[in-house]
Simulated assay, not measured.
Amino acid sequence: MTTHAAEPTTDTKPAEFASFLIGHLSGRVHDQISEEMHQLLEAVNAHGKKGQLTITVTVEPPKGAVDGGPVTIAVDSAVKAPKPVAPPAIYFLDRDGNATRNDPRQVAFDFRTADGPTEFRTAE
Rank of each mutant, 00 (worst) to 15 (best):
P14I: 10
E124V: 04
T118I: 07
S34N: 13
A74T: 06
D115I: 03
T58Y: 05
S77H: 03
E42M: 11
R28L: 10
D110A: 01
Q106F: 15
V57Y: 09
E35M: 03
A108W: 12
A78K: 08
P70F: 13
A81Y: 00
T9E: 04
G68W: 12
T72W: 02
P87S: 00
T72I: 12
A46K: 04
A43L: 05
A78E: 06
E36H: 07
G51E: 03
F20D: 07
E7A: 07
R121N: 14
A114I: 00
P62W: 09
R95D: 15
G68M: 08
H24A: 02
T72V: 05
V66P: 03
A5S: 15
P62A: 09
V29H: 11
D31C: 01
H30K: 13
M37I: 05
T9W: 08
R28E: 05
H4D: 07
M1I: 12
V85L: 06
D110Q: 04
L40T: 09
S34K: 07
G68P: 06
A5G: 11
G51M: 01
E119C: 00
A108F: 12
D76K: 10
Y91H: 12
I55W: 04
L93C: 11
E60A: 11
V75A: 00
A43N: 02
T113V: 11
T56W: 07
T118F: 06
I90P: 06
P70V: 07
Y91Q: 08
R101L: 08
R105L: 02
L53T: 03
A89P: 08
N45K: 13
A65H: 14
S77Y: 01
S34M: 15
A123G: 04
G51Q: 01
H47E: 06
A99P: 14
I90C: 06
A6N: 14
G97H: 14
A65S: 08
L41T: 11
D11Y: 03
S26D: 15
V75S: 01
G64K: 00
I90L: 07
T72Y: 00
D110S: 00
S26C: 10
G69V: 01
A114S: 02
I73H: 04
E7Q: 02
T58N: 13
F20C: 03
P84N: 05
G69F: 02
V44W: 02
I90N: 15
T54H: 02
A86C: 00
L41R: 14
V107E: 15
A43M: 03
